[in-house]
Amino acid sequence: MNPEDGTRVMTTTTRKSTHRKPLEILLEALVRVAGYSAVVFVALIFIFLMREALPTFNEISISELFSRRWYPIEDYFGTLPLLTGSLVITLGAALIAVPFGLMTAVYISEIAPRWLREFLKPLVEVLGGIPSVVLGFLGILVLAPLVREILHIPTGLTAFTGAVLLAGMAIPTIVSVAEDALDTVPKSYRDAALALGATRWQTIWRITVPAARSGVLTATMLGIGRAIGETMTVMMVTGNAPQIASGLSAIFMPLRTMTATIAAEMGEVANGSVHYHALFYIGLALFLISLTVNLTASAVLFRARRRSERLLS
């Protein structure tokens, strides 16, 4: 079914045969406005972030903005520790979430028997629905003490703890997008491989996964995007110390992310102060990062769809 054809049928008939009532014209106009709303909102978000963030550049020099010390009470506004904090925790989360998420997607889509699949899919969806504060709450009460005792470190509120929980938040996204991608690989591909004598694993590894690779890539990117933007969980379990991550041991030390900084400090700053503008500047940076991740992800998907249309036609 091609939705395009139907639309065309409808427009021509409408033009010829109908006397639209004023109410219908009004409703159709409203629907049109609603359709544009998403674009308007993205623009509004950008404009209002800019409006509050731009004064930062007059108030704080660029070199200071990228210096190594974030201590707003004494007017140190170096965002470098927050940036590296976000990077380290996101990277840690990705290292856990990507392999586990992709393997779970492969298992659910290709290996699991039907009954197990019907059980696992909703379960992963439930994980996606758990509010981030609940995960943070468990992180404080269960995971952090565990990390502290097993690793013999002074506090369990570390980047590692945050990364594990963030992985939990990213996994549902990765699993569902990757599983969708694996699902759309035509059955004929698998049948052909199996008929040629390949084992099921060879089919998965050499045929199905490569055929779904753009979807798998998108899944990875969206999962990572989710991890960068997560706020409450990291604020609760990473110890919130704005220090520069140096070396591998940094993963077992307290860190602070960009998102947690905004959430923790915005409640206490005076509107219009330097600190207030600096927090908006961090928000603008987060907005631009998520924009980049999502634009790339949708470009990859779009190209993949065109390619598969060519292949199948």
Partner: peptide
């Protein structure tokens, strides 16, 4: 453009919505 905007809205961090 509308579709891209929707995808982007879905990806914006929740704390940025708070700021906005």
């Amino acid at each position: 453009t509308i579709r891209v905007a929707i995808v982007n809205l879905a990806g914006i961090p929740s704390v940025v919505y708070g700021l906005f």
